[in-house]
C-alpha cells in the first residue's frame, strides 16, 4: 500500500513537469506584455524596456525557465509582478475562501444528490425518476452565472435572507461565515447535484439488477437495508470517481462564482493575474491546481479499495 502511494507520487512528478513547461511556454507566447502593463498608462518605450529588464523578461526563454525552476526547487514561488508580495503569501491569503466554497459546494451536492439518485433508481421509470432526471439535465444546461444571478435575485434581493455578496473569514464568527457561504455554494452545487445524481442513479440501477440483490430480496430483507447496505455500497466506486473528478473540476466553477459573489479566493486571483499578465503568479497557481488534481486522483484510487475490497494496489 505504502509502496503504491510512493510510486504514484513519483509518477506525478513528470506530469507536473509537463504542466510547468506547458504553462511557461504558453505564457511567454501570449501577446500581452506585463512590462507595459506595469509601467503604467503613459510610459515611454524606454521606461517599458527598463521594467522588462528589471523583471528579467529580456533574458532568453531557457534562462528564464531555469531561474524559475531553480527557485521552485528551493521552495521559492517568486514575487508577483503586480502585488509587490511574495506569491506564497498571496496564495495563502486566498486559500480559505476557495476551500470553504469548494467544501460547502461538495457537501451540499453529495447530501442532496445521492439520496435523489438512489430514490430515482429505486423508483425507476416513475414520475419521480423522470423529474429528478429532467431537472438534473436542466442543471447542466444553464451557465453558472445565470444560476447565481437568479438565486441572488430571489434569496438576497426579494426575500432578503442572505447577503448579496462578500465573504467573511471563519475567524470573524461562524454565523456570518456560513450566512455568506450559502448562496455561492448553492449556485456552484447545482451542476454537481445534477452530475452526481445521474451517476448515482445509473450505478445503483446496475447493482439492483445483480443476482445478490435478488437473492437478498428473495431472503426477505427490508428494502431500505437492501438499498443502502448492498446497492449503494456496491455502487460507490463510480460515485466516488465522479465526486472526485467533480472536486478536480471545481476550480472552473469557482472562477465564475467568486466573480459573481465578490469572494476573494484563488479563482478571482487567477483571473486577475491572467488579465494583468502576472506570469509568476499564473505559473504558481496553475502548478498548484495541477498538483491538487493529481493528489485528488490518487485519493480517489485509494478510496476504491475502501469500498471494494477486491481492488488491491
Amino acid at each position: 500500500m505504502l509502496g503504491y502511494v510512493l510510486r504514484r507520487l513519483l509518477a506525478a512528478i513528470p506530469v507536473l513537469a509537463i504542466v510547468a513547461v506547458l504553462v511557461f511556454l504558453m505564457l511567454r507566447l501570449t501577446p500581452g506584455d506585463p512590462a507595459a502593463v506595469i509601467a503604467g498608462d503613459n510610459a515611454s518605450s524606454e521606461q517599458i524596456a527598463q521594467v522588462r529588464s528589471k523583471l528579467g523578461l529580456d533574458q532568453p526563454l531557457p534562462a528564464q525557465f531555469a531561474i524559475w525552476i531553480g527557485n521552485l526547487a528551493t521552495g521559492n514561488l517568486g514575487e508577483s509582478f503586480f502585488f509587490k508580495k511574495s506569491i506564497g503569501e498571496l496564495i495563502l491569503g486566498r486559500i480559505e475562501p476557495t476551500l470553504s466554497l469548494a467544501a460547502a459546494t461538495m457537501l451540499i451536492a453529495v447530501c442532496l444528490a445521492i439520496p435523489l439518485g438512489v430514490v430515482a433508481a429505486y423508483r425507476h421509470g416513475s414520475w419521480l425518476d423522470r423529474i429528478v432526471m429532467g431537472v438534473s439535465v436542466l442543471g447542466f444546461s444553464v451557465p453558472v452565472f445565470v444560476i447565481g444571478y437568479l438565486l441572488i435575485y430571489i434569496f438576497a434581493i426579494t426575500l432578503g435572507w442572505f447577503p448579496v455578496q462578500g465573504y467573511q473569514p471563519l475567524s470573524g464568527g461562524l454565523g456570518g461565515y456560513l450566512h455568506r457561504l450559502v448562496l455561492p455554494s448553492l449556485t456552484l452545487s447545482v451542476v454537481y447535484i445534477a452530475l452526481i445524481a445521474r451517476m448515482t442513479r445509473a450505478s445503483v440501477l446496475e447493482v439492483l439488477n445483480e443476482d445478490y440483490i435478488r437473492t437478498a430480496r428473495a431472503k426477505g430483507q427490508v428494502e431500505r437495508k437492501i438499498l443502502f447496505r448492498h446497492a449503494l455500497k456496491n455502487a460507490a466506486v463510480p460515485i466516488v470517481t465522479v465526486v472526485g473528478i467533480g472536486i478536480a473540476l471545481l476550480i472552473g466553477g469557482v472562477v465564475v462564482t467568486e466573480s459573481v459573489f465578490a469572494i476573494p479566493g484563488l479563482g478571482r486571483l487567477t483571473v486577475d493575474a491572467v488579465l494583468a499578465r502576472d506570469y509568476p503568479t499564473i505559473q504558481a497557481l496553475i502548478l498548484m491546481f495541477s498538483g491538487v488534481y493529481v493528489l485528488i486522483n490518487l485519493l480517489i484510487d485509494l478510496t476504491y479499495s475502501l469500498f471494494d475490497p477486491r481492488i488491491r494496489h
Binding site: I157, P163, V164, Q165, G166, S259, V260, F261, A262
Partner: peptide, 18 residues
C-alpha cells in the same frame, strides 16, 4: 475599499446596505 468587480452586484450591495 472593497473590490466588487461585478457592477450589478455592487449596486445590489449598496441597495442592501452592505
Amino acid at each position: 475599499w472593497l473590490a466588487i468587480s461585478d457592477q450589478q452586484q455592487a449596486v445590489n450591495a449598496l441597495l442592501a446596505g452592505e
